[in-house]
Design a protein around this nucleic acid. Structure first.
Length: 155
DNA sequence: GCCAACGTTGGC
DNA sequence: GCCAACGTTGGC
């Protein structure tokens, strides 16, 4: 299986690329959308590339690179009544929400949403489509080849 | 804070 | 299964 690429949104107030660089590795908690969960649960493979995207902040955009470093397992926050991600309808014998761990790879110069939108060869990125709110989206091999030089890395 | 777009819930 | 109401996302 060749390495796949995913764009994953995180609010830097909650988990930024700097937080990931500090800790080395983080569980991707808090996904409460079925489509995004299905990507992590069914399609993610250890070693897949992650484009770390900062959302809901002053300068939204791709801020770094990471890598999927675990197989899927239940998101512990769904069972924690003190967590904002607590889901009272999820049962421990049938967890509703799954996640993976993600490892830091590199910080990149910010490739801002404005810059992404200004690049004609990136117009087909799912995250740029009108109304797209999905926090995890697949990036094709072709899209990654066009993105990499803009992130200052080799594809 | 606004609001467009989308997802989920729940009554019927 | 329909669909209105509501909640959330996320850029601006």
């Amino acid at each position: 299986m060749t390495q796949q690429t995913w764009l994953m949104k995180s609010e830097p107030d909650e988990a930024s690329i700097d937080d990931l660089a500090r800790s080395g590795r983080l569980p991707w908690t808090g996904v409460r959308n079925y489509q995004a969960r299905n990507f992590m649960r069914d399609a993610f493979r250890v070693g897949d590339r992650v484009l770390f995207y900062h959302s809901s902040c002053a300068e939204p955009g791709i801020a770094g690179l990471a890598e999927v470093c675990s197989t899927p397992y239940p998101d512990p926050t769904q069972f924690d009544p003190t967590s904002p991600y607590f889901d009272p309808k999820s049962r421990s014998d049938a967890p509703r929400w799954m996640l993976v761990d993600v490892a830091f790879v590199a910080k990149t110069p910010l490739l801002s949403l404005t810059a992404l939108r200004a690049a004609p060869d990136l117009a087909d990125l799912t995250v740029l489509q009108k109304g797209s709110r999905l926090s995890i989206t697949p990036v094709t091999a072709e899209q990654w080849q066009r993105l990499a030089p803009k992130l200052g890395v080799s594809a």
